[in-house]
Simulated assay, not measured.
Amino acid sequence: MGQISAQLVKELREKTGAGMMDCKKALMETNGDIQSAIDYLRERGIAQAAKKSGRVAAEGLCEVVVDGNNAVIFELNSETDFVAKNKDFLELLDKVGKALINSNVTNTEEALALTVNGETVETFLINATAKIGEKITLRRVTKVTKDASQGFGAYSHMGGRIVSLVLLAKDNEVVGKDIAMHIAANNPRYLNSASVDAATLEHEKQVLTNQALQEGKPANIVEKMIVGRLNKYLKEICLVDQPFVKDPDLTVAQYLKNNGNDVISFVRLEVGEGIEKVEEDFAAEVAAVTKGN
């Protein structure tokens, strides 16, 4: 069969969860017969990935790769911490990192569509899912580019459970690593108070107002209390106002000033953030299997 329609490829992808190139090849090998193509993929272990597509991949590792004026930071997820430590997963993490740093991708969608050695990143993740035996997903890809005079700082904590990347106004390896380490440890949400969005401020103000009213404070006192508590909250969530992790007597802003530098931006990733994990009852699962036998 010469031509395989895009619609047929799409249908096979939806039925098996296999990658586009694998689906196209399977259809060509089976003269466009969907059922035979499904069997073809199953025989090669590729369609096994489809069975895992509904599972939650909330473990894994994060990675940050710096190469000259480019850096990429991303998260590769697996279903269990055990798999995240195995050789195949670590090789996959390295392969993805190299592919991303040598490309122009700026986000996850672009990363999945990136073609490396004739196959997309999405396809080799699906193939990895079949090989490794757990759902493997790529998420939260960020590419950062700097000027020659600027500097990067990167830090990986707990073997990649938490990673951070900072862009400095001036290149300084020591300051870069120190600030990246601080970001990994203290988890700031914003660079400074000016970068906190209005919705976050309003929400926190409302929470603090309700707290103060619950304490039975009079309205005129409540207003002053909120200002103080809001400022305290901002110092906790803004990088430059936090006590510097290596010297808590200094704020990060003071440490930067002492070293004649500034932070332009930063990214911090922690494995599984924002993924709703499914709590499985292992005893119930074993009981159900035993009952079926």
Results as ranks from 00 to 15, higher is better:
192 N>T: 13
200 T>V: 13
194 A>Y: 04
161 R>P: 00
265 S>D: 10
239 L>D: 01
197 D>I: 07
252 V>E: 03
221 I>V: 15
216 G>L: 13
200 T>R: 06
159 G>C: 07
240 V>N: 02
165 L>C: 03
195 S>A: 13
242 Q>V: 05
252 V>A: 01
151 G>C: 04
262 D>H: 08
186 N>T: 10
191 L>A: 05
234 L>P: 14
207 V>T: 08
245 V>W: 05
180 A>N: 07
224 K>I: 00
241 D>C: 03
194 A>L: 09
255 Y>K: 00
261 N>H: 04
228 G>Y: 12
153 G>N: 04
225 M>Q: 13
170 K>R: 09
207 V>A: 12
217 K>E: 01
184 A>N: 08
176 G>W: 00
204 E>Y: 07
236 E>R: 01
195 S>Q: 10
154 A>W: 04
184 A>G: 03
206 Q>Y: 10
149 S>F: 02
202 E>K: 06
237 I>Y: 09
219 A>H: 10
159 G>D: 08
192 N>D: 15
164 S>M: 09
247 D>V: 00
220 N>W: 00
218 P>V: 14
263 V>F: 11
157 H>A: 07
151 G>F: 02
233 Y>T: 01
223 E>M: 04
165 L>H: 06
164 S>K: 11
250 L>M: 14
171 D>P: 03
203 H>Y: 12
162 I>Q: 07
248 P>N: 12
166 V>A: 03
222 V>W: 09
265 S>L: 10
213 L>I: 14
214 Q>D: 15
253 A>W: 08
258 N>M: 14
197 D>V: 03
161 R>L: 04
209 T>R: 15
265 S>V: 03
260 G>S: 13
154 A>E: 09
256 L>V: 09
154 A>M: 03
203 H>T: 11
253 A>R: 11
237 I>D: 07
239 L>I: 09
182 H>Y: 11
218 P>H: 07
235 K>Y: 06
212 A>E: 08
156 S>H: 02
236 E>L: 08
257 K>M: 08
255 Y>S: 04
251 T>E: 10
183 I>C: 02
172 N>V: 04
164 S>H: 09
227 V>L: 07
204 E>K: 09
167 L>V: 12
237 I>Q: 08
212 A>M: 14
157 H>C: 06
209 T>L: 12
234 L>N: 13
228 G>P: 11
148 A>V: 12
205 K>Q: 15
253 A>Q: 13
207 V>P: 09
207 V>H: 11
251 T>D: 10
257 K>W: 05
185 A>V: 10
188 P>S: 03
159 G>S: 09
158 M>E: 14
206 Q>A: 13
162 I>G: 02
223 E>C: 02
161 R>H: 10
253 A>P: 04
156 S>D: 09
260 G>R: 01
189 R>K: 12
184 A>E: 03
191 L>Y: 09
158 M>H: 12
156 S>I: 06
242 Q>T: 08
232 K>S: 10
178 D>W: 00
201 L>D: 15
172 N>C: 05
185 A>H: 11
219 A>W: 00
193 S>W: 04
220 N>P: 12
233 Y>H: 13
254 Q>R: 05
261 N>S: 07
228 G>D: 08
193 S>C: 05
166 V>P: 03
265 S>P: 00
154 A>Y: 02
215 E>I: 11
181 M>R: 02
151 G>N: 07
243 P>L: 05
257 K>G: 02
190 Y>F: 15
247 D>T: 01
